[in-house]
Design a binder for these strands. Structure first.
Lengths: 226, 226
DNA sequence: CAGCATGCTGAACATGTGTTTAGCATGATG
DNA sequence: CATCATGCTAAACACATGTTCAGCATGCTG
């Protein structure tokens, strides 16, 4: 039953003694994460050390392969999430994952999903928002975070701005196909920690006039012609 | 010198009596904006009412056509910018443009640039940040905006989060190729105005401990092993 | 051993897409 | 009129890429 897994030259850690199907799936996760979903099937096959035809043999279609990757990654995320349910001390789950070296391929893959849109992207966004909301809620209860008029909307806004600014940074600074995800996180922190913290602590506007005007506006809209 | 511009069936407003080259360029701006830069040359040609070969005849290459579009749009933006230099009352220039119906194609095009990355995206980002910085600076002088320890970083953060969240919303909610840019802006406003205004006015964190800790950290870094 | 399922491959096929080529009108110019 | 530049097109070419096909090795089963 030797499946010639020494073909790939250097041992890629994970795919040591896996079945070919699993090796293809792992290679696909890596390729999709590094180069985006436009990566040719031939390249995935090459990284897995198999022929392109075998990819189709096992997964039928590139689209189905992608779905299999999505399910695989989501299963891993779920496992980690339930496993580290006790350690929600200081950071949100996804943020914790982003720091861990070994999860880099999965984070890159998820990032590509976010970038490409689709159902999984929506799910991911909801997860991020839910995580943030729970985290902030704990903070509110602990007295470290100010309460909000609409905690859910606030969490979604933070998810959108956080993920979006990251998306922007990658798009702007990494035009090439290969993205070093941890480096992006590092750049993001170095550049944005101060303004974000400053704004989160002290706010941006000097007075309440704008907010009050808006609150008055929504409580008594001038005309709702929908 | 009749250039058979009645071929396109319905008169597309702008491209009334333009030269074929200009019609191709305008069609390309529209197509790129609506469908992204992956749109086939044949489709651009069809929209312009010409043959695909003529596109190459005039622009040589799809890439050069894209560059021509970029230059054209940037020229228009520049004109509007210098023209409305007096009206920087309440909003930034790009935001003002986003509201105007007639500029929708140009805004969509710029958005695709941001989405695709590259030099123009960087330039655009710098412009956004610069606009925001100037706007905030005026606010600080007027006393409506709080001063910042690093106004430039703050402006960049606001540009990244603003543009990024918009990018995210489009990616998430408009999986299809056609994007109604004004609708996205509307959705963004409805969903995020409250949390953004709330956070900009009241902040997020209840105390200064995190900010102070960070400021202490950067003024006296534990170890700088770069 | 014969037969057959399994895992796998090289080669070909089909299609989409950027680009090139050869040539067609048409009007200006000599 | 002959010639030629201009604006334009249909058709073909080149290439990348997803997918299919016919068949090969290997090991199990009768």
């Amino acid at each position: 039953m030797m499946n010639m897994n020494s073909i790939s030259g250097k041992p890629p850690d994970r795919s040591e003694d896996l079945t070919a199907r699993a090796r293809i799936r792992d290679a696909a996760v890596d390729c999709f994460g590094q180069r985006g979903f436009d990566v040719p099937v031939r390249e995935i096959a090459e990284r897995a050390g198999v022929s392109p035809a075998l990819v189709m043999h096992h997964f039928g279609t590139k689209a189905k392969l992608r779905v299999a990757c999505e399910e695989h990654v989501m299963r891993i995320i779920r496992e980690v999430k339930t496993e580290s349910i006790t350690t929600k001390d200081q950071t949100t789950v996804l943020h914790h994952l982003a720091e861990a070296e070994e999860f880099a391929p999965y984070m890159a893959f998820l990032f590509r999903c976010l970038q490409a849109g689709g159902d999984l992207a929506r799910t991911l966004y909801e997860h991020m928002a839910a995580d943030i909301e729970a985290y902030l809620d704990a903070g509110v209860k602990a007295g470290t975070v100010r309460p909000s008029r609409n905690p859910e909307a606030r969490a979604r806004w933070l998810a959108a701005t956080g993920g979006g600014s990251l998306l922007m940074l990658v798009t702007l600074r990494h035009p090439g196909p290969d993205v070093d995800f941890r480096r992006v996180i590092r750049e993001w922190s170095e550049e944005f920690t101060l303004p974000a913290l400053e704004l989160y602590t002290e706010g941006l506007l000097a007075d309440r006039s704008m907010l009050d005007a808006y609150l008055l506006y929504v409580s008594d809209p001038p005309e709702d012609s929908s």
